[in-house]
């Protein structure tokens, strides 16, 4: 609810602004195109929050959001300066200040979502480190930068974190243990030590594809998903469709 209201207000301001402060024309464009990325970001963030497994990193989207964000911040500080210097001459009025505040709120909101997106990825990486390390080392080698499962920074984080964790274990007790017990990825003894994401968990999904489509479940069971329908499915069955964008997790 409040989202649309704020967007409306921003639209209004953008409209008014076109006539009054011509100087900042470029920013109007930035605001109106923000709506689209904004939706994309909300979708990516929600998917990531709800999925038990790591989704491919949204390289393009995140880069774009980051650029836009720093542009807006630049614009904001410029405007503050502009407002300060022209406050006495009467060029700027109360609306100008309010407008800046709305932009600032918007920036706060965007960075919050980005934060949530990146942090939930990191928490998943922390939880299933060994699994993702083996996952990313196998087939990803030759694939392209923008389709990989984790970003370069996350990769770095993951490996380094694993390294210091191993060091901690070793220094604390593992080095004093019998040698055959010192492995961290031991799968013998009836129990695998590598914890995997619970892909069998159920998730709520909403279909956003225009055309109805059918997914296959266990034991020859099928499920037809129609637009705007809401379903509860095991994550492993729906995973490819989440990545394609046919469904969103809610």
């Amino acid at each position: 609810m409040s989202t649309t209201n704020i967007d409306d207000i921003i639209e209004d301001f953008a409209e008014q602004n076109r006539h009054t402060v011509k100087r900042f024309k470029s920013s109007d464009k930035a605001i109106s195109s923000n709506v689209n990325i904004y939706d994309e970001l909300v979708k990516a963030m929600l998917n990531e929050r709800m999925a038990p497994d790591l989704l491919p990193y949204q390289h393009k989207l995140i880069n774009e959001v980051l650029t836009k964000l720093s542009n807006q911040q630049q614009y904001l500080s410029d405007s503050h300066e502009y407002g300060d210097t022209n406050a006495s001459s009467g060029i700027v009025d109360g609306d100008f200040k309010l407008q800046l505040m709305i932009i600032e709120t918007e920036i706060e909101r965007l960075s919050y979502m980005l934060r949530l997106y990146l942090r939930s990825r990191l928490s998943k990486i922390d939880k299933y480190t060994i699994h993702y390390i083996s996952e990313t080392s196998k087939p990803e080698e030759g694939s392209q930068e923008d389709t990989s499962l984790v970003s370069k920074q996350e990769m770095e984080y993951m490996h380094q974190h694993f390294k210091i964790l191993t060091q901690l274990y070793n220094n604390s007790f593992l080095k004093k243990m019998p040698h055959f017990l010192t492995y961290l990825d031991d799968t013998s003894g009836g129990q695998s030590m590598i914890s995997k994401p619970p892909v069998n968990n159920h998730v709520f999904v909403k279909s956003v594809s225009k055309k109805p489509f059918v997914i296959s479940l266990d034991e020859d069971e099928d499920l037809e998903l129609t637009e705007n329908g809401i379903y509860v499915v095991k994550y492993k069955f729906i995973k490819p469709y989440v990545e394609l964008g046919d469904v969103v997790l809610i």
């Binding site: 980051l66 964000l69 960075s111 934060r115 996350e154 770095e156």
Partner: peptide
């Protein structure tokens, strides 16, 4: 190190 890649963001 990780945060330095997102300078504008208070992660």
């Amino acid at each position: 190190n990780y945060k330095s890649h997102f300078a504008d963001l208070d992660l």
